[in-house]
Design a protein around this nucleic acid. Sequence first.
DNA 1: GCCCAGAGCTCGT
DNA 2: GCTCTGGGC
Length: 537
Amino acid sequence: MGIKDLLKFMKPYIVPIHINKYSGKRVGVDAFSWLHKGAYSCSMELALNTKGEKGRRYLQYCMHHINLLRHNGITPVVVFDGGSIPCKSNTASERRRRRNANHALAKEKLDQGNVNAAIELFQKAVHITPEMAHQLIQILKTENIEFVVAPYEADSQLAYLSTLEPDQGGISAVITEDSDLMAYGCQAIIFKMDRYGNAQEILMDNVFNSLSDGPSFKHFDIELFTGMCVMAGCDFLPSIPDIGIKRAHSLVSKYRNLDSVLSILKIRKEKQMPDDYVKSFKKAIAVFRHALIYDPGKKTLKNMKPLPDSILQSLDGDLDILGPDLPTSIAISIAEGCMNPITKEVFDSKAHDQLHTSITVRKASTIHIRRQQDSQTPYRNEIGTSIFSIGEMSEEKIKAEPEALEKYSNESIALRKLLLPMKSYKAEKKAEDKVLDFPDNNPFKKRKLVNSDAETAVVVARTVTEQTISEVTNVESGKSKKKESVDSLPLLFTEKNLKASIETKSKMSGSKSKSKSKVMTTKKGSITSFFMRKTAS
DNA sequence: GCCCAGAGCTCGT
DNA sequence: GCTCTGGGC
Ligand SMILES: [Mg+2]
């Protein structure tokens, strides 16, 4: 969705250029734009997962555009989307629903022998998978082209990179199709680049100088501009009825202060404004200013801009809306293209060897939460993932005291198996016949069984070796369930509308952590437990 | 004039 | 993701 009507509104500031203007510069690329356009050249092959060269035309499309940049003396920095942040609007799931419907229709037409009709429908089912991104990354690696997979939105990652100096890994401009880049405060943005390098550019310096015709931003700064964007309607918050880009701009121009505008709106639109609008507004602003991004220099996650205490308060301590934090090793593996940013599975065993060393001493426990759909709240958590760290060892320490690694080895083995793709589980199953280390009930598969419109939700907690989940309490009834030892028994909650507090205790480090989650179960309760046998003999 | 909802389109022969 | 269109006020 981007910012509603923003591109049209900013048209007076958009000028045609040729990308050779950026010769000698580093320029960021929103990979999604090109992957998505390229996918139209082979929609059927992608949908049917056809083997062969035709199904890779989207890669040719991307590489053509990337090579065009290189031919013009530009150093491309390709940025991929990672996971989705919790508070994004449900238009994404709406789109997915339409795509799936079109995919099914396309297959019917194909069975009837109507290939042209099928292709038309397959095109309406086009979508980008992490695997497709991974395929492009493989090429970028061999071609020595810089890239990074953002922990969450590519937009914020690109905006962050454009704040850095070129010698610090920064970029001079961003190529994208998404107006959100303006709201994120990106200085130079290039839209609609065609196959010859013709494009349209906007420079935010020109916007704030407001020398050309069009809406004036003379008294705006980037904070006010972002406020205008949120007010006009963005992915994180729908606008108040009858407030569009024009009125948002007028209000911000007049009062030059976001709190003042919000007060005025509260009075003027008291019936139309949701009770929590101001709170949601501040949260949306916080995402545009402080989203969680990957710092390629330090190889760690951080906020796009440092998080002041004042913002922390307006978030109610809910930092997850900026993107849930991830262990550093996971973030690195994702950023370097070794790990699926959504499922957290490694892409292949070869990539697994390239994983950061400290990953071997981490424990992963993922909790998938699908909250009850609640029309009153604009924020909806679809899936949340938590990965708990139980300890870290530097490469130096491992070399100095290899025996120290021993105590982690069980976990290491378990974690490797956890992270390996499903193929490997199946291989083990065959090799060991009926004796299974891992039953064939991958929670990631189960997640797909959960309907996107299901009113209820699944929580699957997976434990690896030493983790214990000591107690699950039903807050409403006060009843609690205790688990003496769950070394090999993760929990599955099948009660309906369970509101539970979960205490997690690490045997290895002795540290305890508590977490509370709203827990709901599947409608049909058809999910079975996931077991992981202790690997210690 | 402005907002909104809906429908069509992104490749390439 | 964007753009165009037509209808509402
Ligand atoms: Mg966006």
